[in-house]
Amino acid sequence: MTIYLAGGCFWGLQKYFDQFPGVRATEVGYANGPDSAPTYREVCDSSGHAETVKIEYDPKEISLRELLDKYFLVIDPLSVNKQGNDRGIQYRTGIYYADQSQLSEIQAVYDEQEAKYGAKLAVELAPIQNFYSAEEYHQKYLDKNPDGYCHIPQKMFHLAEEESKETLRKKIGDLSYEVTQNAATERPFTGEYDDFFEKGIYVDIVSGEPLFSSLDKFDSGCGWPAFSKPIEGKELKETTDRSHGMVRTEVRSAQANSHLGHVFPDGPRETGGLRYCINSASLRFIPYDKLEEEGYGEYKKLFER
């Protein structure tokens, strides 16, 4: 699906929408002016076109309502031909639809915004009449020129990242989020898997990537789950951790880069001498009898040797 949105300088509006999952492609251009292709200079000289972003999106991943809700976060819907320091007819706000079926959803959001502000919106609502692609140097301008001018606050370019973080926090819980994302440490002897030795595997609570097997788990008495090695063939990331006045080897998951814990050279000699000291909050346990059901059937062979 395609929607055309005008809201001040199109440099910032394009970068803003490029961040959201479900937005497949964007293009900046000049819309709903005289039916002839203008140059940027002609647009700035009040040709009548609006600086507009053409947005191609997958409605299965992001709805038109979601796009419009995000649009209204970065425009002044009551101003005529003015957005921030941008003044002129080319900087007017507008929602230009390509398909009549989009109108009812657009109108619903539009009505909600008018009720919110208690005033008539200055945002044009009309079918797309024409759209002319802007010169190449305007495309992805702020990616090419990170210090370029933009009327949209910088923090809004990280909105999707913040939304993703909040979604993850709700999914895995505050403790697991702080451990995996901010390298926090759960209190000793409080973790779910500290004194836990059922048959199965442990996966990253964030990504589900397999990390450790119960076959390699042992009671180290340290207050956290301890493993002598990761699952065979599974690599972990190791980095030097100099926090808290110590020098330790931090362990992270390879795919999701989740903080897991640390590895020490004081494990059982008969199993290689390593002790992977891991936070329970970074793990999810998959019982042996549910490996097939959960999509980890290939790991049953670990227990058949």
Rank of each mutant, 00 (worst) to 15 (best):
I172Y: 00
V247K: 05
E270I: 09
N257H: 13
M156W: 15
Q100A: 14
S164E: 15
E250H: 08
Q255T: 10
L283P: 03
V80Q: 03
I55D: 10
E51V: 07
D266Y: 15
F227C: 11
D194E: 13
R242H: 15
S213M: 08
F189V: 06
S133H: 11
Y71Q: 05
I62A: 07
D219P: 12
P38F: 08
N279Y: 00
L236E: 05
R284L: 07
F157C: 08
K199Y: 09
T239A: 10
Q129G: 14
L78G: 03
F227K: 12
Y110V: 00
L64M: 09
A256H: 02
V263C: 07
Q107C: 05
V206M: 02
Q113N: 03
E163S: 04
V203G: 02
Y132S: 02
E198Q: 13
L73C: 13
L283I: 04
D289N: 14
L302E: 08
K237E: 15
D143L: 15
E51G: 02
D194I: 05
E294F: 03
K82Y: 00
S258P: 08
T190Y: 05
F285K: 10
S282T: 06
H158A: 15
Q129I: 08
D58P: 12
D174F: 12
G88S: 03
V263H: 00
G295V: 01
K300F: 11
P77N: 11
S46V: 02
V247L: 14
S46M: 01
P34I: 01
W224H: 04
L13D: 09
P77H: 06
D111V: 05
G33Y: 03
S213N: 09
E304Q: 13
K155L: 10
E209Q: 10
L302S: 11
R169F: 03
E292H: 05
S79D: 04
R187G: 01
S36Y: 14
R305Q: 15
L78H: 07
D58A: 12
E105H: 06
F218T: 01
